[in-house]
Amino acid sequence: MLAGEGLALALAEPLTSGEDVIELQLPAGDPARVRAILDACFAPADLLLSDAPIALPGLFVSDMDSTMIAAECIDELADFAGLKPQIAAITERAMQGELDFAQALTERVALLGGLGQDAIAQCLAERIEMMPGARVLVATLKAHGCFTVLVTGGFHQFADPVAEHLGFERVVANRLGMHEGRLTGGLVGGITDSGVKRQVLLEEGARLGADTVSLATGDGANDIPMLEAATYGLAYYAKPKARAAANGAIDRGDLTSVLALLGIPRRDWVLG
């Protein structure tokens, strides 16, 4: 089908990862057009498009909610306040890019005012599950010399324990205001939004060196600037706008599919 669209194919062979991954090399072609053809033929599939040979990243920056964990923390926390339908509707619109993130976040947090601190601990214990392959992905990238950052529009109260469990080395997140064991309905400090996510990726990349290959994963509109700024931006079961902005997508496998796309053999994955 590529040839039929005038796109010459120079190479088609299994990737060195040993997984079910095919590497296609085209000497020329518009990436958006190539991707549209691949989607038409193979979707749902996991793919990564690059204008240079795939290299191992020295920096990995990831979103948390619905990317590293199988939940939206604020929605689950709202359930303890009996407000999940109202807050989840706002969350969905913000992730689709229909609402300003900062405004949507402020409105949702305000609705949680008065909720007891024990609800956070209960929510963590009962509702927050790691995405399949998350721990293997982080551990394997670190074993290959990659610096890892969890950056989220969610909250430190959730992100810090998640990062510790998965092995992330830095956490950037919002912080829920607390007073006498209850949520104040406000935030402490500045808001971690899409601009902050992008800036964290750029700053860490500069710190590690100008030639550092960066990898980012995310699923919502708030992740778009970060996905666009990364060498490899992978949209994980993402909203349409985020998927369109990324140069790769995971639509079929779990997070270990990232390792397969990078060409890391399964024998080199850190499974412990």
Score class of each variant (00 low, 15 high):
L2R: 11
L2H: 08
G4E: 12
L9K: 14
A10Q: 13
L11V: 05
L11R: 14
D20N: 14
D20A: 15
V21N: 06
V21E: 10
V21G: 06
I22S: 14
I22L: 15
Q25R: 15
L26W: 09
P27T: 04
P27H: 12
G29I: 07
A32D: 14
A36E: 14
A36K: 14
D39G: 12
P44M: 06
D46Q: 06
D46R: 00
L48N: 05
L48H: 06
D51G: 14
A52C: 08
P53Y: 00
A55I: 05
A55G: 14
G58L: 05
L59E: 04
F60A: 06
M64I: 02
T67H: 00
M68H: 04
A70T: 10
A71D: 11
C73I: 02
I74T: 03
D75Q: 11
E76I: 00
A78K: 03
D79P: 07
A81G: 13
L83E: 10
K84Y: 09
Q96K: 15
E98S: 07
Q103N: 12
T106F: 09
E107V: 08
R108E: 10
V109A: 11
L112H: 04
Q122V: 09
L124T: 00
A125P: 07
A125F: 01
R127K: 11
M131C: 05
P132V: 07
G133W: 00
T140Q: 03
A143P: 07
G145E: 11
V149L: 04
V151R: 01
V151W: 05
A159F: 00
D160Q: 13
A163C: 05
H165A: 14
L166D: 01
G167E: 12
V171Y: 07
A173Y: 03
L176K: 02
G177C: 10
E180N: 07
T184P: 14
D193N: 11
S194R: 02
G195Q: 06
Q199K: 15
L201D: 02
L202E: 13
A206Q: 14
G209Q: 09
G209I: 03
T212I: 00
V213S: 02
S214I: 02
N222Q: 08
L227Q: 02
A230I: 05
Y232A: 00
G233L: 05
G233T: 03
A238R: 02
A245H: 04
A245N: 06
A246G: 07
D251T: 09
G253F: 00
L255Q: 05
S257D: 06
L259G: 03
A260W: 04
L261S: 04
G263F: 08
I264P: 02
I264N: 01
R266I: 09
R267L: 13
V270Q: 13
G272S: 15
G272D: 15
